[in-house]
Structures are given as C-alpha cells and as structure tokens.
C-alpha cells in the first residue's frame, strides 16, 4: 500500500472520549485490574486526584489515531513515555484524549510519525512516536 504522506504533513487530530466504562472494559481485556483505574477510594488513598486511565489505554488510543491516518498500515515501532495522568471523572462525558501527529520522514518504505497526545490541554505522553510500513 502506498500512503499519500510526505515529511512535514500535519495529520488531522483525532479525539476520543474516555469514560469509566471504557476503563472497566480495558481492565478486563488487558488483565490490568489495578484499582487506581476503577476505584476513587483507592486512587485518592494513594494520593491521586481520582481514578486515572491506564497508561496503556491512552497509548492504545494513540495507536488508533496512527491506524486512522495510515489506513491500518503495519506498525514496526511504537511507544512513548507516560508523563501525565489522564483523570477520568465519573460522568457520562468522562474526559477526552486528543492525538495530533506530524509526518517526520518517509523513507525506505517506512513512515515515521511524531505524535502529540493531550488531555485538558496537557501532554500526557512524552515523545510518542510510531513507525509504520507503507
């Protein structure tokens, strides 16, 4: 597959709503049942402002954005640092994670994307990057 991407291209930001129900579903699917991701009581007891999303859930949303931009192209390298928490209030709306991206390079059949993943205007992943085969 050939993607119509060139170095310097800015990619359409993708926004994803995150609710408590999403965290419960992710806990079950991933096997990460750490109570800080579903219990306000536990989260506040360990000094958190409230229930926070699994870092790997946020990273999975970043992966979704990469797939949306590249038509699901195979991922060769993907990752980032967990720099800030995504606090998820117990409301119908929950919160929103937004993933923006820029094409860093296109070479040798590989496309490198630099991402910016934010929640409430704050970066939640540090240096998130994806390399896909295209």
């Amino acid at each position: 597959m050939t993607l119509d991407l060139a170095a310097g291209d800015a990619l359409e930001p993708q926004s994803y709503a995150v609710t408590r129900a999403d965290l419960v579903r992710y806990a079950g699917a991933s096997g990460d049942f750490n109570p800080i991701h579903w219990s306000d009581r536990t989260a506040t007891a360990v000094g958190l402002p409230g229930v926070i999303a699994h870092g790997m859930f946020t990273m999975a949303l970043a992966g979704r954005a990469v797939a949306a931009w590249t038509g699901g192209a195979p991922v060769v390298d993907f990752g980032g640092k967990f720099t800030n928490m995504v606090v998820v209030p117990d409301t119908d709306e929950g919160t929103t994670v937004t993933v923006a991206g820029t094409v860093k390079s296109v070479a040798d059949g590989l496309v490198t994307l630099a991402l910016e993943v934010t929640c409430d205007g704050q970066k939640v992943l540090g240096n998130p990057k994806a390399v896909v085969r295209a």
């Binding site: 999403d22 992710y26 999975a60 992966g63 797939a67 699901g72 195979p74 991922v75 994806a130």
Partner: peptide, 12 residues
Amino acid sequence: AIGWEYDSVPPT
C-alpha cells in the same frame, strides 16, 4: 475495548 476497527492485531 480500545475501539480498534481493523482486522489486524492492535500494536499494543
């Protein structure tokens, strides 16, 4: 759980 809409296995 992550809203992945492709046939492939999610990268995470």
